[in-house]
Computed example of a mutant assay.
Amino acid sequence: MLKKIALLSILSLLVVSCGEPQARKPISRSTGSFLKESVERNKALIAKEEANIQKYILQDTTNAYIASKNGFWYFYNTKINQELYLPKKGDTLTYEYNISKMTTGEAIYKKEEIGIQQYVVDKQQIFPGLRHGLQLLKKGETATFLFPSHVAYGYHGDNKRIGTNVPIKSTITLLDIKKDNKNLETEN
């Protein structure tokens, strides 16, 4: 008799536990306040960095800075005035650059340390400011860029020498452009 009761108890437990799982309601609901606060912090950070860059530009009376549509400023060290080809998607660019602290000019990475680099336009990952800056240069041109942190290395930095939310200054020289075959066809 005891065996029958134990068997019935086990069977009833199995039947009850095999039912459909019931969804649990969340304990708390997100109001989006964290996201809103984060957006406000980022806006304030960008505004502060841009104000510091504007102050830097005003103090630099030697150079005529150009504001880019991508959120950074630059001036040409070497400008080629004749109509030359600008990089397009798929082109392979050969370039060199350095990175320094915007405020002090102290080198973070020297161009000799970085070495000559290659980049296939819009097909490889490099930081946004460098990607957009290279596309403004013609072969043989050199420009100095002031990159706010959000178009440089952002919140994470480079996990080496560039810290969190650090605006940088970079002088970039476009040494060569190897045109993509598709761009050669559209040029003719």
Rank of each mutant, 00 (worst) to 15 (best):
Y109G: 02
L86A: 13
H150T: 11
S38D: 12
L174K: 00
I116T: 15
I46Y: 13
A47T: 14
Q125Y: 13
A107D: 05
N63V: 11
C18F: 06
A51L: 11
S28D: 03
T103R: 12
E37L: 07
F75A: 14
N42R: 03
G115W: 02
T61N: 14
D91C: 01
D176N: 10
V15I: 14
S17G: 06
D180F: 05
F72A: 04
Y155R: 13
Y95S: 03
E141L: 03
K36V: 02
T173L: 04
Y97H: 07
L174C: 00
G140W: 01
A143K: 03
D122C: 15
P26H: 02
V121M: 13
C18P: 08
E96M: 13
S38F: 02
S100F: 05
L134N: 02
F34L: 04
V151G: 11
S149Y: 10
C18W: 09
E20W: 03
L58A: 15
P21G: 05
L137T: 00
R161G: 12
V16W: 10
G133W: 00
K43Y: 08
K69T: 05
F145R: 09
Q54G: 09
L136T: 02
I66L: 07
N52Q: 14
T61S: 14
V16Q: 02
F75H: 14
T144P: 03
E96H: 06
L134T: 00
Q22F: 13
R161F: 06
Y65H: 07
Q117F: 03
K79V: 08
F34S: 08
K111G: 00
K123H: 14
E106W: 05
L130A: 06
H156F: 09
G71N: 09
K139E: 13
P167V: 12
T61W: 02
T78N: 14
P167I: 10
V120G: 14
G154C: 09
I27R: 04
Q135W: 01
A107F: 06
T94V: 12
T144D: 10
E83C: 14
K88V: 09
F147R: 06
T103A: 15
F127T: 10
P167A: 15
L130R: 01
K169C: 03
N81G: 13
T31P: 07
K43L: 11
Q117E: 09
C18T: 10
P148A: 09
N159D: 15
Q135H: 07
K179C: 09
E96I: 01
L11W: 08
V15A: 06
G71C: 06
L8V: 08
A44T: 05
K123V: 08
T171L: 12
L137S: 01
G163W: 03
S100C: 12
L146C: 13
N77Q: 15
K69P: 03
I168Y: 05
Y119C: 11
